[in-house]
Design a protein around this nucleic acid. Structure first.
Ligand SMILES: [Zn+2]
Ligand SMILES: [Zn+2]
Ligand SMILES: [Zn+2]
Ligand SMILES: [Zn+2]
Lengths: 156, 156
DNA sequence: ATCCTATATGAAAATGGTTTCCATTAGCAA
DNA sequence: TTGCTAATGGAAACCATTTTCATATAGGAT
């Protein structure tokens, strides 16, 4: 019985090594925080959560690691208009399910929604197919966000 | 016969004044550049285009004006991942038609497409309706972008 | 277990798009 | 024309992110 996140057997070990990246304790710690946290974390959020237990992981490393993880497709990077990048674990083993975002332009609150996703994704796939053909563009990812006022900001 | 973009009769005069903003020559010049230019301009792009004819309009004013225009809904602000905001005239009188974007993650090229827009928008409207009800969220705008590799970057 | 080398790291400094400050100018209502 | 207030420009401040560079470490080879 192999423990699922054992240092040398975790499922992301393969992904890392396969792409020529080394598996370091810092990278594991960051991935761990991301998989345990709700919401959309900024680099500094992660630094804060990590610091008590790993006081020697610097902000620089967090930025670099987030970059690697995004390249590997393990996380997504978002811009919700609050002037700092936000990160979220991608779908997949242990990852969250596919969802899109509602963003309040007033208070910057972000709501994840999974309703309607199926229809949306179905249409997106068709659109993607058409766009690929017409523009010879190899689509790898999509972004859908709705902007407006949240419940609280609306009544004011 | 009233000239369409005469200083005091232009169609955006009303919009400005109605919201308590003053119509200044700088604002007109910026709006003018945006309506005459193809593509997705950054604040500095606009500054460069403006400078020869209006050497006394500063970058600061451009940023402030773009903010006002976005608030008025006259322009949209985008993040295409090249670390600077990009602006584009919204639909409407003299504005471009509604479109979405294909973004090359390698060379940052951006392709506007209008194909499939009708189906997309139709679905989006339904989704919006549902989301409004479920989350009591007042949706005012949406963003759809596809990421991938453009024709040129794909063959490498 | 030990070496070796390319990769990863942290601290500090640099970067650069955007915002803020403040003294001056200019819309526009009366 | 006058007066009040919003708008402006230049310089300085801001601040998330990136770069630099000397040091540490992962992990394949011995
Ligand atoms: Zn809100
Ligand atoms: Zn989310
Ligand atoms: Zn490209
Ligand atoms: Zn466009």
């Amino acid at each position: 019985m192999v423990k699922n996140n054992c240092r040398r057997h975790g499922w992301w070990n393969i992904k890392f090594r396969g792409c020529g990246y080394r598996l370091t304790s810092g990278r594991e710690a960051i991935l761990d925080i991301l998989s345990k946290s709700e919401g959309h974390l900024s680099a500094e959020d992660i630094y804060m959560k990590l610091h008590p237990k790993y006081p020697n992981i610097g902000l620089t490393t967090i930025y670099r690691t987030l970059d690697v993880l995004a390249n590997l497709g393990l996380i997504f990077k978002f811009d919700f208009g609050d002037k700092r990048a936000r990160y979220e674990l991608a779908e997949g083993p242990k990852g969250a399910q596919h969802h899109h975002h509602l963003i309040c332009t007033s208070c910057k609150r972000v709501i994840d929604y999974t309703d309607f996703i199926d229809e949306e994704v179905k249409l997106l796939n068709e659109t993607e197919k058409g766009l690929c053909q017409k523009y010879e563009f190899k689509i790898t990812n999509h972004l859908i966000q709705f902007y407006g006022l949240c419940k609280i900001c609306a009544k004011r």
